[in-house]
Amino acid sequence: MSPSPPLSAELRQVERCYQRGQEEVAALRTLDWKVAQGRWHAVRGPSGSGKSPLLHLLGGLDRPTRGQVLLARRHIPEDAGPRDPLIDLHAMDDEALARLRRTEVGFVFQSFHLLPTLNATENAALPLLLDGVRESDARQRAEHLLETVGLGHRRGHFPEELSGGERQRVATARALAPGPSLLLADEPTGNLDRVQGLEVLELFSRLMADHDMTIVMVTHDALAAERAEQVHELDDGRWLPR
């Protein structure tokens, strides 16, 4: 399984509004963004600035109220829609988006979100298993990735037996398992202490070098943002001028 080539994404006039009672609240306001391939992007901003909704839109977890979220065509399954260099995620049905998430996009969450009943290897292999990869192949790939993130010796351990940093590394291995071209990280160091946070950021740097992927990382942490190649500031659903 060789990693896929870097993925580019584009947001065109994207708006995301939520209904809160009678009131419509805008999380993202007419946002445009061209995500360069093979780069590490950090998105910073205060709470409620729209960082997480942005990430959810890029990962196909959510749909925009208005505008388009486009991913590079070559990474999208053949049956997803008409041929075009970029395809609108809105045109994809629910199952196609699910397939996209288990093949092309990797997620790393602030709260790790590991399954407590699966050990480290099984957690890391989960997207592959869901994609119908043979169990032995999935396990082999997961073990390799755990080695990569420095957890080869903890592969049989369950989440409750791991530290926060270790859990985040298992979550990263899981995100990398399908060989995604886009890694989306939502506050990956938010629940970690300083040392563990640095370890994870170091891991991301290594992955950038080894796997040639695009990383979009949402963070509060200025130190974490400094490790990224490009830092974007978001406030009240709009980009702040650089």
Binding site: G59, A98, L100, L126, P127
Partner: peptide, 16 residues
């Protein structure tokens, strides 16, 4: 719900 949502997030089809 969290576990189920997570499975969806990592690409589990609804039928799974």
């Amino acid at each position: 719900r969290r576990e189920i949502g997570l499975l969806r997030a990592v690409g589990a089809p609804r039928q799974v």
